[in-house]
Design a protein around this nucleic acid. Sequence first.
DNA 1: CGCTTGATTGAGTGCACTCAATCGGGGTGG
DNA 2: CCACCCCGATTGAGTGCACTCAATCAAGCG
Lengths: 298, 298
Amino acid sequence: MRVNTSTTETIMSEAAQLIQHDRSHQISRDRLPAFPSRPVSGLPSSLLDDTADLHDSFMPFQGFQSLQDPQQRMLEMMRTVRELVQPASKVVRPGDVLYHSGLPFNTVFLINSGAYKLVSRSLDGREQIVSLKFRGDWLGFSGIAYGRHACDAVAMDTGNVSIIPYATLLEGCVRHPELMAVVHEAMSTEIRRERESLMSVCTLASQARVAEFLCAWARSMAQRGLRADELTLRMTRADLGNYLGMTLETVSRCLSRLNREQLIRFGERGRRQISIPDLTRLEQYVISGSSARTARLQ
Amino acid sequence: MRVNTSTTETIMSEAAQLIQHDRSHQISRDRLPAFPSRPVSGLPSSLLDDTADLHDSFMPFQGFQSLQDPQQRMLEMMRTVRELVQPASKVVRPGDVLYHSGLPFNTVFLINSGAYKLVSRSLDGREQIVSLKFRGDWLGFSGIAYGRHACDAVAMDTGNVSIIPYATLLEGCVRHPELMAVVHEAMSTEIRRERESLMSVCTLASQARVAEFLCAWARSMAQRGLRADELTLRMTRADLGNYLGMTLETVSRCLSRLNREQLIRFGERGRRQISIPDLTRLEQYVISGSSARTARLQ
DNA sequence: CGCTTGATTGAGTGCACTCAATCGGGGTGG
DNA sequence: CCACCCCGATTGAGTGCACTCAATCAAGCG
């Protein structure tokens, strides 16, 4: 990524920010293979031993961790919230803004349907899409910290969100520990995803980044029980490029190349519709295409 | 990346500015000026009105938001945790690993001193430093989501951490809502910082990225009451490059160039020690050097 | 029909990468 | 003590990927 230092006169090009592939989509951590046991180096073993046996004792709080199917878990989570909080809900249309960066924070949202983008702004006007959110995701957590929202939340499609005043949520958490577990889990998931985005942006070449983005979107859809082989992107190339940390031209070129290489296919209803004939092959491409773009550790 | 300073609303950028800059370090949100009221466009006003009056009612839960001085707030937060959880603590030495990615999650840590890096690994072996943590930061939140840690936490220096079994923390949160507020705030802060990192990587040219990293580190130190004009980086150029999404050679070149341009100065005790004669000037450089690297939105 | 917005593609350039050599400090052993 | 080595850091030379600029095309709309 290179930046261009031109003067500030252009328009809003600040976007470039992000990249990552799955930024806002789930990672299939569940598919994590049995983790190779690795010696815990450099750490007094007592540190880990101290707490190792607590695993069971805290399970009751873990909420939905025990459920295997992620989709089931999500539904369970949403049902829990509906029952314990009984939130109002709201229909949103494309372009609607749920909250603005800088405005006082007092509400979070749980997405029932639709697709949303979170846009951060820097002082000097750069804009960055920092996350994409879908059904089952929460909106607004980043505003807790300083009592003001940290970004804009913009609907990219018609959808529906539950409106949950933060005060109500906190009260619910106090009364119902299982709700607190749900909230913690959701925030933890959000932290994880941001990091995956960062990793994508930092370690993948542009075409692999686009490919991973598509993989992540597909997995995200699959996890929500939707079609994973026919994606309908609800974003312009500019949005995509901003999110992925590259220019819109590069996005376009990468998609064309992926199409040429048969890894994806454009749909009949415009080039925002993308079908993935073989997700495994696309995922394989990401791995093989992951060039060591950045400094190797160690 | 270039930003385009066109008509974009300067209003928000003020706020954004307070937010941004600092990747893994706290931002002083408290300095936020009275926020200019701005019409909330695109959203049915009822949506916001519904909850607007709740602001006061949830203040009691806000914990330390009302305290003005961030450093005071941090101390208050740490005192609260110590009182309500009474955690054990542990000394760590450079290279010690607090937890490994993939291992079962059951403990979080609160940093009393030292510097730590969080390293994520992808399935295909890529490694990425996703975050740097210091006194007052928490370690381990990302493990809540799937019951397994999402990254390695490695000490970069001698330090001390409080060991807090997650079960204990949850129990404490149930009993003491103010502790829950602290935890939520900490997680929210973590989400914010990850996003700031992403924005840096996506929108800044390499040299500005290095400069911003130094600014953030300096602010972070200042906020913790430490010297902000004499930084002692505890990382190799490779670590730095990995964190910033560039090669170690590029990091080296950027630092040399910043030194040549008098924006920084190398210390006597090696080139990992960096002094910043004029932080404001360095911050100015970041802003002016932020070219529109990526697709502009809209 | 012209205008606008989004997407694609081409041509050319430059920034950040790769490869590689050199330098310096800290530790070890002859 | 010095020679040696290893590791981290710096610097140079050259290359290539992703950027900028720009033209073209398609679709939607007044």
